[in-house]
């Protein structure tokens, strides 16, 4: 039997139809959610492509430099702080474990590889998402609800080119640099914890750091950080730019929710993409 829009609902008895509707509701909700996410993914991809196309347009350089300051330079302190303590704690944990098997000499190798290949790009990206990503999302969101973006349109200024492209370009430049800073400070943190506080040999630590790291480790870390830059900047800009399309709230509350969503989605996508990129690079 072929069912079309004119076909009577099946099964025909009303109570059975209600039961059927009740049981199918979770699948409907799941389906709607999935369609919504695919829809958003497509919209965000188009949004990113449009922004990338406008990066090279005239008068962008000063805006990109300004955004590098906001996203990059102003995130340096938090990245350095987190990098320092991350390096210290992993050094502490590794020293404890290596001490059990008498291999304290490998401390520098483990700290350096863990930081450069994995923790540096991931934690730096999460910290930037929390600090700069939230600011991007809320700033653009407020510009949207206060009609500043509409004002740009009426002035014939392309809002994507004016607001989004410089931020994405700045993120792509800032993320690898901040990751490098995180790695460097993390290794110094590992030295403070492992060598100065726990008594590992300083020469061995730096020798292992130097010999165990090769260019591929560093470049893999940078590739990850660039992927994370695209993810964080696109997600945060997208959430702010389309804050008026939210169905769950309006106005200031919508900006708050968009900012929260931006940070949460960025962090989740950083971890998901980290696995995918790592497996591709291995």
């Amino acid at each position: 039997m072929v069912l079309d829009s004119n076909s009577p609902p099946l099964p025909k008895r009303e109570d059975e139809w209600r039961l059927f509707t009740f049981l199918s509701r979770p699948f409907a909700v799941l389906g709607r959610g999935a369609i919504n996410r695919v829809d958003n993914l497509g919209a965000a991809t188009i949004f990113l492509i449009l922004a990338l196309l406008k990066i090279a347009s005239p008068k962008q350089l000063s805006k990109i430099v300004q955004q590098i300051y906001y996203i990059g330079a102003r995130s340096m302190m938090i990245v350095m702080l987190v990098g320092l303590f991350t390096g210290m704690v992993i050094s502490l944990q590794f020293y404890y474990a290596l001490n059990k098997v008498g291999a304290q000499g490998a401390l520098g190798t483990l700290v350096a590889l863990t930081l450069v290949r994995e923790l540096g790009p991931v934690l730096a990206a999460i910290m930037i998402a929390a600090r700069a990503g939230s600011a991007i999302s809320s700033e653009i969101g407020i510009q949207r609800i206060s009609e500043q973006i509409d004002a740009l349109c009426t002035m014939r200024i392309d809002p994507i080119g004016y607001l989004i492209s410089p931020r994405i370009a700045a993120a792509v430049i800032s993320f690898p640099l901040l990751t490098a800073l995180f790695d460097l400070i993390g290794i110094i943190g590992g030295y403070i914890s492992g060598v100065l506080l726990l008594g590992a040999n300083a020469g061995t630590y730096f020798y292992r750091v130097q010999t165990s790291l090769n260019m591929k480790d560093v470049s893999d870390g940078f590739i990850k950080s660039i992927v994370f830059a695209f993810i964080v900047s696109t997600v945060c800009c997208f959430q702010g730019y389309f804050v008026h399309m939210r169905t769950d709230s309006h106005g200031a509350k919508a900006v708050g929710l968009a900012t929260t969503s931006a940070v949460v989605i960025s962090c989740v996508l950083i971890l998901v993409s980290d696995y995918i990129v790592t497996s591709l690079l291995m």
């Binding site: 008068k59 009609e147 004002a151 009426t154 014939r156 200024i157």
Partner: peptide, 27 residues
């Protein structure tokens, strides 16, 4: 064409001078 918004839609992170100069600088 120019449009003056009901709530002004001024860029709050820019000074008065920068707000007025914006359309000239960008377009």
């Amino acid at each position: 064409m120019s449009y003056m918004f009901q709530d002004n839609a001024l860029f709050d992170s820019m000074t008065v001078y920068e707000n007025i100069a914006l359309p000239l600088r960008e377009t």
